[in-house]
Design a protein around this nucleic acid. Structure first.
Length: 306
DNA sequence: CCAGTAGCCTGCTTGC
DNA sequence: TGCAAGCAGGCTACTG
């Protein structure tokens, strides 16, 4: 499941392998993967054909490639990977993978040696998709452009302009549970179910903690934990884009090795074990998804908000 | 405006 | 063995 670190790995791969190229042809094999393009697949194809791909950008789990026509910027190709989306760069003629949904043919870069490439959007479950959108100025930063459809997304903890104090104030004004707030991409972006559980564990906070009772120390600890979890995942997955095949299926290599609570229900809490205490990680259903935590170092708050 | 939830999707796993 | 239900969960659109 791609979260921010996985999406950043894709962004880097695209910067390395697709930026600077011009789209010569587009094939929408499954219109559902372009359903967020309001004007339909034919318009999607038309807007992309002949466009030049600039350096990809990212906010949270949204990724976009600014497009220039023959002239200045005309918009952006926006991608969201959803649950199972992948963006792959291939040589034309490579065998089509099972869930190939959209294909973009990319012209060679103009040095005579280079070949054409294919940018492929592969997505088993079709929660993700591609669309073309207009670029608008960021409200809090004149001059910074982002797709109109991404304007409501909050800055992520790896963004230099991320403001922990501002997010803390907004958290305090909410009346909800902490994990619900962490997963709200308008408040702070890039955090999905897995990294939410991992960050909460690190910060020793329970997912049902009422946001309005959080103090600065705790929110500071939490954002720090989120950043650490993301940076570690990035360090492990962020080196695999050095070959042509931009491999980003959500496997950053982080999953098996470094997870402390997610997928570890029934196993001992590592932090408690280090302290010579015994506590077993539990898994509960919450918000129609699973939440894992250690009941000893992340005790259920007195006034829990589920 | 805010909090909370249904529905979108496919494929693997589990239960009868 | 076959079939159905359960599960995985990010995001938008919608309701209260």
């Amino acid at each position: 499941m791609p979260e921010l670190p996985e999406v950043e790995v894709v962004r880097r791969g695209l910067e390395r392998w697709a930026a600077g190229r011009t789209v010569s042809a587009v094939e929408v094999l499954d219109a559902r993967s372009a359903r967020r393009h309001d004007a339909g697949p034919a318009d999607f194809t038309e807007r992309l054909t002949g466009a030049r791909l600039a350096v990809p950008e990212r906010r949270g789990k949204y990724l976009w490639i600014p497009l220039s026509g023959p002239g200045p910027l005309t918009g952006a190709l926006v991608a969201h990977l959803g649950m199972s989306g992948q963006l792959l760069v291939n040589e034309p003629g490579d065998t089509d993978p099972r869930h190939l949904r959209i294909r973009l043919l990319l012209e060679p870069v103009e040095d005579g040696e280079d070949r054409s490439r294919e940018l492929r959007f592969v997505d088993q479950r079709i929660f993700g998709g591609l669309f073309v959108d207009a670029l608008v100025e960021a409200v809090d930063r004149p001059g910074q452009l982002l797709p109109a459809s991404v304007a409501h997304i909050g800055r992520d903890p790896l963004d230099p302009a991320f403001d922990p104090e501002a997010v803390h104030s907004r958290l305090r004004r909410r009346k909800t549970g902490l994990k619900r707030a962490l997963l709200d991409q308008a408040l702070v972006s890039g955090i999905g179910n897995i990294y939410a559980d991992e960050a909460l564990w690190r910060a020793r906070l329970h997912y049902a903690r009422p946001t309005e009772t959080l103090n600065r120390t705790e929110s500071g600890r939490l954002f720090e934990a989120v950043r650490e979890v993301m940076e570690e995942a990035l360090a492990q997955g962020g080196t695999s884009f050095d070959s042509l095949y931009v491999n980003v299926n959500g496997d950053s290599g982080y999953f098996d090795r470094s997870l402390n609570v997610y997928g570890r229900a029934g196993q001992p809490c590592r932090r408690c074990a280090r302290q010579g205490r015994e506590s077993i990680v539990v898994r509960e259903r919450f918000m129609n998804r699973s939440s894992a935590y250690c009941p000893r170092c992340q005790p259920v708050p007195r006034r829990a908000r589920w």
